[in-house]
Design a protein around this nucleic acid. Structure first.
Lengths: 346, 346
DNA sequence: ATGAAAGCGCTAACAA
DNA sequence: TTGTTAGCGCTTTCAT
């Protein structure tokens, strides 16, 4: 039978319909379908068959009310629209939830504390089992106090004053791996294009870049912009770079969008990528890294994986009566090779 | 009081806690808070104050079970991650829902009918009040039969065999407006770069382009690619264009990504945008249209607005006992001017 | 192994 | 205007 089926009185098929059709009590139906309690195999099979035939699906409102478990997880994020990142986190969380028959309710605050508070209240009133709190950029945050009353997992962020599970990208190694990749290709005069504004992601990448350079006895060249991590910012930083350090042979950019700006400024100056200049970005935004010519070698941010990880942790917390130990994770990020890095010929 | 507050027995504050604290019955609390039934202003005020003080929020599971209204809307989409479009639709729906104290549950099918069916079953079991069914690209679809048992609004798509509200972009006028904009700037040899694969969005834009050209007695030049609506497809189509129609002075591209490919091929051929070639795209993807140099003039797709519209329709259907007339909408799309169109000097 | 009954927290119908 | 009572459709105790 099709889902959303009705019984003869026009109401959605309920547990009593199944019980009477199978000739058992509603308790037995509940037991047979949920796998709880003891039911003979013959009875169980009959109940399952009848339920399928009638197109029965338990009303999750009623079961949630009684069992205190709704199978709904709230996902609070600061932005869901400006970048495709949000989508990847949501998708990972969603697929992990779907595997367990759970649902994700996404709300977004637009970085407004009042709206955020209201949204969380709505989620709590809806009796969500847990909340995943995600920020679109790797940065610290102070999560609303209301989250302390419910299992919470943080994605892309952490809160000094709140001891709960979190997962972030390993920003230090993003910087180190990107830079090492360029060093491995024979480059020595390697610049880092970044943004002025401090942040967990930015600072980690800068530190990783410095570490890789120093490890090889190379002098770091850091150029930053106040324009933000966009193509415009990339152009601005690139102009500074070409002006002050015309001899660099490779550049590690804070993100793919800044790398796009660098491509544009390079073209304007008649500098060819990768022949005259090798470039590495961060994000692996298909829309940018995959679309640039030549394709941009970049480090992929593990948004999908972090979304999945968050739901794994939610399950771990919900399955254990006594709270399991709090876990933190720094995801190592993969370098995605395209065509923007050339071996330096000396 | 903070939300998610507990009473002295450690349970979440309930309606009985409020009732006894305010010295009234739970019915009166319900009436006072919901605005239903008759309650004196003094009593209402007292109840509201006490509820606020105790941090009470009604359990939406319990109220939904009784009232048959959950305040949760399901949003089914084929993709939520690959493009920022999904985000805009979700955001619009979400903000409209939030205005009404509703919640949006997003599920995505990844274009897999089986997964789609399962996701919809989960939504129905969760007793969502309505479902918004959205596709990421403007195309026809056959929605699952289960949606006929619940108020449904279609976004970016319609179903021949299912008479329900839908909203799509006005693709014909996208083509017509984009082309007219170029004609208004004095261009006459205007090509249209598009994809081979037919579709509501593609076909409408092609028709609109043809209409505008014919209206001005100009000969249409259509170049299409089998590579898909990406930068790669744009490059491929652009190569054809420069090869076969080197004299065009303006191009209307199927979307921003193809326009990006055109920019790249133009640069390779030493053709300057906009001095030698004017370009118009479609989508207004900030990541592309805003990042290209020069900035791309493009037609914005009304994803956010369609998301909001869908929730408006949901409300209209839910508020009326007897189903109100089915409504369809073709959103006229706005041209966003940047710097890729120049007046033709003859 | 199965079923009767209680009750999750609320709203709707009805009584006072 | 306020309160009493009966469920909403399930799961959970506790009998049998």
């Amino acid at each position: 039978m099709v889902s959303g089926a009705r019984n003869m009185s026009g109401k959605r098929v309920g547990i009593t319909d199944v019980a009477s059709a199978a000739g058992v009590s509603i308790t037995t139906v509940s037991h047979a379908l949920s796998g709880q309690g003891k039911v003979s195999d013959r009875t169980r099979q009959r109940v399952v068959d009848v339920a399928a035939e009638l197109g029965y699906a338990p009303n999750r409102l009623a079961s949630g009310l009684r069992s205190k478990r709704t199978g709904v997880i709230g996902l609070v994020s600061d932005e869901v629209a400006t970048t495709p990142f949000a989508g990847r986190i949501v998708l990972g969380a969603q697929e992990a939830a779907s595997d367990r028959g759970w649902l994700i309710v996404v709300v977004n605050s637009g970085n407004d504390r009042l709206i955020e508070q209201r949204q969380i209240d709505t989620l709590l009133a809806q009796q969500v089992d847990a909340i995943v709190y995600a920020t679109m950029y790797h940065r610290p945050s102070t999560v609303p106090a209301a989250l302390r009353s419910i299992p919470t997992v943080l994605v892309n962020t952490r809160d000094e004053g709140f001891d709960t599970c979190w997962v972030v990208p390993d920003s230090f190694n993003i910087g180190k791996d990107a830079t090492s990749h360029l060093i491995d290709h024979g480059h020595e005069r390697i610049a880092h294009l970044t943004i002025e504004q401090p942040g967990l992601g930015r600072d980690g990448r800068v530190a990783g870049y410095r570490a890789a350079m120093e490890e090889h006895g190379l002098a770091p060249i850091i150029v930053s912009t106040t324009e933000g991590a966009t193509a415009v910012g990339g152009r601005e930083a690139a102009e500074q770079l070409f002006d002050r350090h015309p001899d660099v042979t490779a550049v590690f950019c804070f993100n793919d969008q800044m790398a796009m700006g660098l491509y544009q400024t390079a073209a304007k100056h008649g500098v060819q990528v990768p022949d005259d200049l090798s470039v590495v970005g961060v994000d692996n935004l298909e829309l940018v890294a995959g679309a640039l010519l030549p394709g941009l070698t970049t480090i992929a941010l593990p948004h999908y994986e972090m979304g999945r990880w968050a739901i794994d942790q939610v399950e771990r917390v919900l399955e254990h009566e006594d709270p399991p130990p709090v876990v933190h994770e720094r995801y190592r990020c993969e370098l995605v090779e395209r065509d923007s890095v050339a071996r330096l010929r000396r």
